[in-house]
């Protein structure tokens, strides 16, 4: 029973981290229809910047400085890269970010090496917060959860209660109309892009030391974040939250289930040869496929995603 609670808590932390990444991306996609393929690369940069800063100055300055740095980088990318290719159309914009992700993926191992860097949880939070049934739960995980929830609350308040949030929400569905009303939509977009990148960077700062900081971390998480954004519906923050938590929980739970697929499907009456190639796979084995399986299922039933307003 306690184990189940820990699995659920871990799934919640993972899901909230996914939300921190996908909330920025879904705003970017929703506003300008630009899929930022390099979004997870900014997550990776956040973790690496935080590592370098924490070596010199410690974790707490890194928690502030690394996301800011990543945000500034994001603004520069939008201002001098994306805007330049904008006249070539949406495809060129998307491909620009693909190339950018590729180049960042090549440069990061050049600077920090191909293996994982020793980016550690700060000593202040490196203690078990509580013990249940002989299992300790790390305080840092609670800290991650607190940061994620604070970010969600802040984002929600900013979007729902401020004038800028109103413009952003309007630009999500009717960018042309908002521009006609005299708002500088490209500038708002630069801001959203930078803020989205900074959020991805923050996710890297607090996720890089809880998991591992390696050059492969962007690729590993990138595709899952896209799955979240598509599943939630393009441009929908609540959709992104639901999809993040669902994927985080279901993937974390499925990793811990050691039951073979054949036996499990047998329980619910589906015949699958328990000794065949498919029947022998355990659910834990199948865990990497779970987010994409969920994506395909959601899209098959509801092509716009859970809460998508826009079709494209």
């Amino acid at each position: 029973m306690q184990e189940a609670l820990f699995v659920l808590l871990n799934g919640l932390v993972y899901g909230l981290l996914l939300f921190m990444l996908s909330s920025g991306l879904t705003l970017i996609v929703g506003m300008m229809g630009v899929l930022n393929f390099a979004h997870a690369s900014f997550y990776m940069l956040g973790a690496y910047f935080a590592y370098t800063i924490s070596v010199g100055l410690g974790f707490w300055p890194a928690l502030i400085a690394a996301p800011l740095l990543v945000g500034v980088l994001g603004v520069a990318v939008e201002r001098y890269g994306l805007r330049a290719v904008h006249r070539h159309g949406k495809l060129a914009e998307l491909l620009f970010t693909v190339g950018l992700a590729f180049i960042i993926g090549e440069i990061v191992p050049l600077i920090w090496g191909r293996s994982a860097v020793p980016y550690r949880v700060p000593a202040l939070l490196d203690f078990p917060a509580f013990t249940l049934g002989g299992i300790q739960y790390q305080a840092y995980r609670l800290f991650m959860m607190a940061v994620s929830v604070a970010i969600f609350a802040g984002l929600y308040a900013a979007l729902a209660r401020t004038r800028l949030g109103l413009v952003i929400r309007a630009a999500l569905t009717h960018p042309d109309m908002v521009a006609m009303l005299g708002h500088d939509v490209p500038r708002v977009f630069t801001l959203v892009f930078g803020a989205g990148c900074a959020l991805a960077g923050l996710a890297g700062v607090i996720g890089g030391n809880a998991f591992t900081t390696t050059p492969g971390m962007a690729e590993a998480l990138g595709a899952i974040v896209f799955a979240v954004v598509i599943m939630g519906g393009l441009g929908s923050i609540p959709g992104a939250l639901i999809a993040s938590l669902a994927i985080g929980l279901i993937q974390t739970v499925s990793i811990t289930l050691d039951m073979p697929l054949g036996a499990m499907l047998g329980h619910i009456g589906l015949p699958l040869d328990p000794h065949g190639a498919l029947g022998q796979i355990t659910i834990a084995h199948a865990a990497p496929a779970v987010p994409y399986l969920m994506l395909v299922l959601v899209l098959a039933l509801h092509p716009r995603g859970l809460m998508g307003a826009r079709a494209d």
Partner: peptide
């Protein structure tokens, strides 16, 4: 779907 959504779905299918 078309455009960006199509591209992202193909990415999910590829990962699957």
């Amino acid at each position: 779907r078309e455009g960006t959504a199509f591209a992202m779905i193909t990415l999910g299918i590829a990962e699957l």
